[in-house]
Write a protein that binds this DNA or RNA. Structure first.
Lengths: 149, 149
DNA sequence: AAGGCCATGGATGACATCGACCTTAAAATA
DNA sequence: TATTTTAAGGTCGATGTCATCCATGGCCTT
């Protein structure tokens, strides 16, 4: 992982469709060499996948929500993590320091849907207490890649 | 934006390198039609860009941090948003409801670097109060696409 | 001196891309 | 209501670019 690898990654992050010849011209290598480096980066796991960054609004999920979660005392934590991984709305789920146990990030079409999500958590007996925060706007939105349906 | 478009998007999200013929086989269309649909989705902005999802650990930024921020009373809010957009460590920045004004998500190599980040915010006279939350683990990590350097 | 690592260049087959033509469905007019 | 018009999207085929692979050669390390 040298400077050239980083440069290639930077270029791919901006536009993964650029040709190997094009990238090679930018970093001073032949197309073959760039291809070999990308192959190695992918094989080593540094590049997890080639994907698309989508517009949440176009996908009908304009509303970005963060939910702080404290699990029930008797909740099956492993089951919750698995549930989170499979849930199509949950884009991220992190076990965090501080007063709350988990921070969950999700996208929904509109605020009323949040209620359904919380009800679902409750029905599964995961939810102890929670606090919901809604994003009003996003100066830096970050990429949006939908989960497998 | 019909069901086929959604299917194509789903396939691209999982692997943007699949050939048009391959995708066409999965959705029942010719390669040309798939190409035309992807072209339209990109032109309309539904697909923002083709990119790569990276392993944060391989990129040397294992530590995921969320910082709640209340700006100083006299802070230039527009300047802060611009600053956040340009900052290479800041992956996301959202204006949120609740007790805090902004939620910032960033990745660093190790916890000590957080201190430098907060000092930088203070030096720019943006920071009123803040609260830092560190992710211990991530059942659902979400994609990682580094910012332009 | 020898071995491994990486870049190069060329051959090859797959692929994206484009244009011409066709089908279908909806809109417009009689 | 029936008929014509128009537009949108699909297929097919041609073309040129591109990714991919392999043999070769240089460079650094041990």
């Amino acid at each position: 992982m040298d400077d050239i690898d980083l440069k290639i990654i930077g270029l791919l992050a901006l536009d993964a469709k650029r040709s190997l010849a094009d990238i090679g011209g930018s970093v001073g290598l032949s197309p073959s060499s760039v291809n070999e480096r990308i192959r190695r980066l992918t094989a080593s796991g540094a590049i997890r996948q080639f994907t698309v960054d989508l517009d949440p609004a176009a996908m009908g999920v304009q509303t970005l929500v963060f939910v702080w979660i404290a699990l029930r005392e008797d909740a099956d934590e492993a089951a919750f993590r698995d549930y989170a991984a499979r849930h199509p709305l949950i884009l991220e789920c992190h076990h965090v320091t501080g007063a709350w146990a988990y921070l969950v990030k999700l996208r929904v079409g509109a605020p009323p849907e949040i209620e359904g999500f919380l009800a679902e958590l409750k029905a599964h007996r995961y939810l102890g207490r929670s606090e919901t925060v809604i994003a009003l706007s996003s100066p830096v939105p970050g990429p949006f890649v939908p989960k497998e349906s």
